[in-house]
């Protein structure tokens, strides 16, 4: 008998508590930046594509919804010739972001991706690539890697010595 009134009391009390439910879509909720939503490809601070087409995101993807093809541009930089995510398969697990060695692929708080046609959920590189650095400012893979690209000679990366002169006999 007592427990019945207690339950009723709790329910009544909640009628006056501040609401946590947001009247979506009239009101937009503020999602924290670490929310795992729509996937993007970011650029490095110098404006170059961050993705170097290493295939790690596609390899780790548990639903195999990422396909890409690596290519090399005239400057010696690796980039994806095409980069496709089939969002109708994506489970937004975020493993691709964890696997990415260059901070290129990032999950964003964007969740409004609904489409009437499944085919429209297939995103190509031009749909994915944004013009900013996303969540990780400052990092540029090519400044760390030993690979020579235009504008960065051998030995010019962070923590590198100038190239060895093989014909030098000095100790």
């Amino acid at each position: 008998m007592f427990s019945l009134f207690k339950g009723l009391w709790i329910v009544l009390r909640h009628a006056f508590v501040k609401r946590v439910t947001v009247e979506y879509p009239e009101k937009k909720p503020v999602l924290p930046p670490r929310c795992r939503g729509r996937i993007i490809l970011s650029r490095d601070p110098d404006g170059g594509e961050r993705c170097v087409a290493c295939h790690l995101c596609s390899a780790v993807c548990p639903v195999a919804c990422i396909a890409l093809q690596a290519a090399e541009d005239a400057h010696g930089r690796r980039y994806p010739k095409f980069f496709r995510i089939n969002f109708s398969r994506c489970i937004f697990c975020g493993l691709c972001e964890e696997a990415c060695p260059t901070y290129a692929i990032q999950l964003t708080p964007g969740v409004e991706m609904g489409e009437y046609k499944r085919q429209h959920l297939v995103y190509e590189k031009e749909d994915l690539l944004i013009s900013g650095v996303g969540k990780y400012p400052g990092y540029n893979f090519y400044r760390v890697a030993g690979l020579q690209i235009e504008g960065k000679d051998k030995g010019a990366a962070e923590n590198e010595q100038p190239p060895v002169d093989v014909r030098d006999l000095m100790p």
Binding site: H55, S58, A59, C61, V63, A64, C65, I66, A67, L68, F82, R84, I85, N86, S88, R89, R118, Q119, L121, V122, E124
Partner: peptide, 16 residues
């Protein structure tokens, strides 16, 4: 067993 991109490689033509 690590073959990737099965559900995306042909998705540009058809998502099915």
């Amino acid at each position: 067993h690590r073959y990737s991109g099965r559900t995306a490689m042909g998705a540009d033509v058809s998502v099915h």
